[in-house]
């Protein structure tokens, strides 16, 4: 398989995910399949092709530096699993 068990564990660690043995095996298989599919591109001769940063032929899309209203603090905190005053509260990091 293209992706090793160690690579799955490394990526999981970077995303702070705890995986079961069954998940490690499943993700190793799925990630390998994705990599293989993308690897199809290697079969083409791309020596004259610029890397694509964006699929649209567009550049310089931006907005003027003019403030718009923010949302209400209560609204901002509405989906927070936990809060303290007007702060979001999370486990010690």
């Amino acid at each position: 398989m293209a992706i090793t068990r160690a690579e799955v564990l490394h990526v999981a660690r970077l995303a702070r995910l705890a995986l079961t043995e069954e998940e490690i095996a499943r993700f190793q298989e799925q990630l390998s399949a994705i990599l293989e599919a993308v690897g199809k591109v290697d079969e083409l001769d791309l020596s004259g092709v610029e890397p694509t940063a964006h699929p649209l032929e567009l550049s310089n899309v931006w907005g003027a530096d003019e403030p718009r209203p923010s949302i209400d603090v209560e609204e901002a905190l509405a989906n927070a699993p936990d809060r303290e005053g007007s702060y979001f509260r999370v486990p010690p990091a």
């Binding site: 899309v61 907005g63 403030p67 718009r68 923010s70 603090v73 905190l77 007007s86």
Partner: peptide
């Protein structure tokens, strides 16, 4: 386009973009 500024009350200058709600899109300044 949330206002910047030092010393505003916490979380008073936020919106779905800077809170990373699903589906939002960034627009550069």
């Amino acid at each position: 386009r949330c206002a910047t500024g030092f010393g505003a009350p916490e979380n008073s200058s936020t919106c779905p973009v800077c809170l990373a709600h699903p589906g939002v899109l960034p627009v550069p300044n």
